[in-house]
Structure formats: C-alpha cells, structure tokens
Computed example of a mutant assay.
Amino acid sequence: MLITGGHSGIGLECVKRLVWDRPLNIVLAGRSPDRMKEVVGQLRQNGGTKISTLPLDTSSLTSVREAAARLRSMVEGGEIDTLQAILCNAGGRSFGPVLHSPEDYETTFAGNYLGHFLLVHLLVDSLAKDGRVVFTTSGTHDPDTRDGKAVGPAVEPDAWKLAKVGVDGGKPLSSGVRYATAKLCVILFAYELHRRLQRSGSSISSIAFDPGSVSGTSFLRGAPAPLRFIAGTSFARRLMKLAGITLGSLEVSGASLAKLATDTAYAQGSGRYFQVNDGSFGERRSATISYDEARAIKLWNASKQLVSLTTTEESPLLR
C-alpha cells in the first residue's frame, strides 16, 4: 500500500491503524525523508508488517516520475508485495505569495491535484485487480456549503488557468480559492477515473474522501502562528460547529481513511464520496459541479498535456 503524506496528520493516523489491524507492506511517500524515517522507527510494527519510505514531492512532476519508477522496481524486484492501494493523501494550503513548482505551475494546484493525477497514471497498471485508489479531498470544494464559503468558493476547474495562476502578472486567486478549486479537481478526477476503469472492465476502485476540518494537520502549514494556535483550540472548534463547518478529528478521519483503503464494506465504493463530520462517517453527495462529466473530461485532457503524459505512460485501462 502506497500513501502520500503518510508521515504526518491524517495520513499518519491512517498508517497507525493499518499497522495495528493487519500485516502489510506500507510505503510512506513524502518530501521529508528524515521525518519519514523517524515515523518508521516510532511505529509498532506487527509481525509481517514492513514499512518502507519513498522520496516524493507531489508538486514536482520530475519527483513523481522518479518515485513511480522506484516503486515499480520495488514491486517487480519482490522488495514489496503487489500494490493493493494508492492513497493520494498529501496536500495542503499555502499562505503568503503565490509559489510555483519546478515546472512553473502554481504549487497548491500541482501538489494537491496535478502530481497525484500523474502518479495514478504511472502506477495504475501496478495495482492488484481489485485494488483501490483513495483521494483525500475537502468539503471546501463545494461552493454551496459553509466549508466552501469559509475559504472562498471554488472557481471553474480550468487546468491551464489554475496551473498558471500568478505567472501572467494578473491578480492571483486567494489561497483559499486555490485550495478549494484544487480539491474540486481531485474529485472530478476521482469520478472520471472511476468511469474509465468501469468502461475498461477493471475492478479497481476510485474513491473520494473528505476527512473534515482537522486541527494538527498540514492544512494550515505556512499560516501565521496565532492562526494555527487558535484553529487548534476547543473554542474554535465550537465556533466552527455552530457555523456549520464539517468537522473531523485525527483519530476518526485517520481510521476512516484506513477503512476506505482496506475494509470489504467499501469494496463497492468506487465513484462515491465519503465524509467525516463530527464523529460520524458515511457517504455524502459532493458538489453538483463535481458530477459534470464534460468538465471532468476537459480537465483530464488538459492535465495530460500539463504533465506531458506520453503514450507509453498512459495505461490502456484509462484511454
């Protein structure tokens, strides 16, 4: 099982649950090798469980390609077992000036969406026949909810415009709008991936997951220290609940992500959206726009161009 961002926050809680429940090969993929090694040393590993690390920065397409090649060689060389699940969990919201990736793409869009788009394309053929791809998304993607209104409503999921925010010298989108729209793109991708897998006769599942607003994660990485402190208080949580914000927790959200990855109860979860809210976990409707197939296809094709996906990299399952 491969998880991006599995060395902190919700991803780490998910990994802890997976390690406790059953023997697995787990590959932690992230851009903090020292932190990942520290986590491996801290985790209690059950008999038969093996945890490996893989350098990966999802905002860098070069890094994604290198990581995918390394993972395929690990599987082919018998270093790890057949890939059962890909958990596209890494992401975050950047504050301050607009930043850009090595490919000159806006980093919120690249790190949350575009890197995972490429990673799934490169690894889908390495998945088991009944494998799963689970995408960590966010309720902020829906402009009709309190979550979406709180950060700024998502805009049209135009891949080229989102990738080039801040490049042309025009007025940039706010950090909240960039984040919400990137997560909308993730859900559009998850649903289109589901449709293409179904048409090809594949039993691989593609699932979207909203962990709710969770303090103690990388969501506020880069935010002013006072904001990070306030967001983690019980007072802030009560206010958010009163305001109608979707609330998660490290424990419940991490455990829910683990269930989506492995539990047979979610074997038929492909093409669906699951959400944690105030201790509960279940299927919900995502934003109306997220079910727009024409937008999803347009986003898919533009994303292929942005990542320079070659014919040899594109799986027959997804054409």
Rank of each mutant, 00 (worst) to 15 (best):
166 G>D: 04
186 V>M: 14
176 G>C: 11
251 E>D: 15
270 S>K: 09
163 A>Q: 11
156 E>C: 10
57 D>A: 10
60 S>Y: 02
135 F>T: 12
15 V>R: 00
299 L>K: 02
38 E>K: 15
46 N>Q: 14
70 R>P: 00
103 E>P: 05
115 G>W: 01
83 L>C: 01
285 R>M: 06
1 M>R: 05
215 S>L: 00
105 Y>H: 15
177 V>L: 02
51 I>S: 03
212 G>V: 05
236 A>G: 04
134 V>N: 03
15 V>G: 00
240 M>A: 15
62 T>A: 14
98 V>M: 01
209 F>W: 01
119 L>T: 08
156 E>H: 14
184 L>S: 06
86 I>V: 15
239 L>G: 15
95 F>R: 09
110 A>Q: 07
104 D>C: 10
163 A>L: 02
80 I>K: 02
53 T>Y: 05
172 P>Y: 09
12 L>V: 03
131 G>D: 06
20 W>G: 07
276 V>G: 13
197 L>I: 06
236 A>D: 02
164 K>T: 15
150 A>W: 00
282 G>Q: 13
60 S>C: 09
136 T>Q: 10
240 M>H: 04
200 S>W: 08
172 P>I: 10
4 T>L: 06
104 D>V: 08
294 A>K: 12
125 D>K: 11
244 G>Q: 03
83 L>A: 05
117 F>H: 10
111 G>V: 02
11 G>R: 05
251 E>H: 12
92 G>N: 03
170 G>Y: 07
270 S>A: 12
41 G>T: 11
191 Y>L: 15
132 R>M: 02
45 Q>E: 12
32 S>Y: 00
114 L>A: 09
294 A>L: 06
209 F>Q: 04
245 I>A: 06
284 R>M: 13
39 V>N: 03
34 D>E: 15
170 G>W: 08
313 E>I: 05
269 G>M: 07
181 T>E: 13
135 F>W: 15
309 L>Q: 07
187 I>H: 14
289 I>G: 00
293 E>K: 15
99 L>H: 12
215 S>N: 10
174 S>L: 04
247 L>H: 13
199 R>Q: 14
4 T>K: 11
225 A>K: 12
131 G>I: 05
166 G>P: 06
246 T>H: 05
191 Y>C: 02
237 R>L: 13
100 H>D: 04
171 K>H: 10
135 F>I: 07
159 A>R: 01
273 Y>E: 03
301 N>V: 02
257 L>R: 00
14 C>F: 01
